[in-house]
Amino acid sequence: MTGTARTDTAQLMELLSVSLASYYGEFTVAAASENLTASQGKTLTVLRRGAASMSALATTLTCDASNMTGIVDRLEKRGLVRREPSPSDRRVKNVALTADGERVIDTIRGRMQHTVAGLERLDVQERETLSVLLERVFVERPAT
């Protein structure tokens, strides 16, 4: 790796750091406006992609399973999520977003004006490129 490649990577990491700090700062304020902690809001965001087991949620959110139980308990009490048996293993409980949970996460995202405005400054091709790059860097996992 050349010095330039290291610098480019370091610069990208710094931009990601600044971007994520801005995003999560705005997300935390928006979640609080719905009387949710950032962790509760993040849980709703993850569940927007589909139901997940408690252990998968804990792994995705990098938190202890007992902490995840407390987060889900509080969200369930508010009617934002529900526990349901896993279709593949009835001993496992999945957590799913309710209609109220979808409404709340949509409200949180709608309140993130700085993030929305920044993304809306991108044209269609730029959005597609950003989507592909984020998917490649953060979502795709190499086969092991």
Rank of each mutant, 00 (worst) to 15 (best):
Ala30Ile: 13
Ala30Phe: 02
Ala30Gln: 02
Ala31Asp: 04
Ser33His: 08
Ser33Leu: 08
Glu34Arg: 12
Asn35Ser: 10
Leu36Trp: 08
Thr37Glu: 09
Ser39Lys: 08
Gln40Met: 12
Gly41Thr: 13
Gly41Ser: 12
Lys42Pro: 03
Lys42Gly: 08
Lys42Asn: 11
Thr43His: 06
Thr43Lys: 10
Thr43Val: 06
Thr45Asp: 11
Val46Ala: 10
Leu47His: 09
Leu47Asp: 09
Ala52Tyr: 07
Ala52Lys: 15
Ser53Asp: 06
Met54Trp: 00
Leu57Gly: 06
Ala58Lys: 05
Ala58Ser: 15
Ala58Ile: 12
Thr59Met: 12
Thr59Leu: 14
Thr59Phe: 13
Thr60His: 01
Thr60Cys: 08
Thr60Ser: 06
Leu61Gly: 06
Leu61Glu: 05
Leu61Ile: 02
Leu61Asp: 05
Asp64Met: 00
Asp64Arg: 03
Ala65Tyr: 00
Ala65Gln: 02
Ala65Pro: 01
Ser66Met: 03
Asn67Ala: 08
Met68Asn: 02
Gly70Trp: 00
Asp73Gly: 04
Asp73Thr: 10
Arg74Met: 11
Leu75Ser: 03
Lys77Val: 06
Gly79Glu: 05
Arg82Glu: 08
Arg83Ser: 08
Arg83His: 12
Glu84Phe: 07
Glu84Val: 14
Glu84Thr: 13
Ser86Leu: 05
Asp89Ile: 00
Asp89Gly: 00
Asp89Ala: 02
Arg90Leu: 13
Arg91Asp: 02
Asn94Asp: 14
Asn94Ala: 01
Val95Asp: 09
Asp100Arg: 14
Asp100Phe: 13
Gly101Phe: 03
Glu102Lys: 12
Ile105Glu: 10
Ile105Gln: 04
Ile105Ser: 06
Ile105His: 03
Asp106Pro: 04
Asp106Lys: 14
Ile108Glu: 15
Ile108Ser: 10
Arg109Trp: 06
Arg109His: 14
Arg111Ala: 03
His114Asn: 07
His114Leu: 13
His114Tyr: 04
His114Ser: 14
Thr115Trp: 07
Val116Asn: 15
Val116Met: 12
Ala117Asp: 15
Ala117Ser: 13
Ala117Lys: 07
Gly118Gln: 12
Leu119Ala: 07
Leu119Pro: 03
Leu119Cys: 09
Arg121Gly: 12
Arg121Lys: 09
Arg121Leu: 04
Leu122Gln: 05
Asp123Thr: 04
Gln125Met: 02
Gln125Leu: 13
Glu126Phe: 01
Arg127Gln: 15
Arg127Lys: 15
Arg127Asn: 14
Arg127Thr: 15
Thr129Met: 10
Thr129Asn: 03
Leu130Cys: 03
Ser131Thr: 15
Val132Asp: 07
Val132Leu: 09
Glu135Arg: 09
Glu135Ala: 09
Glu135Gly: 01
Arg136Glu: 01
Arg136Ile: 04
Arg136Val: 02
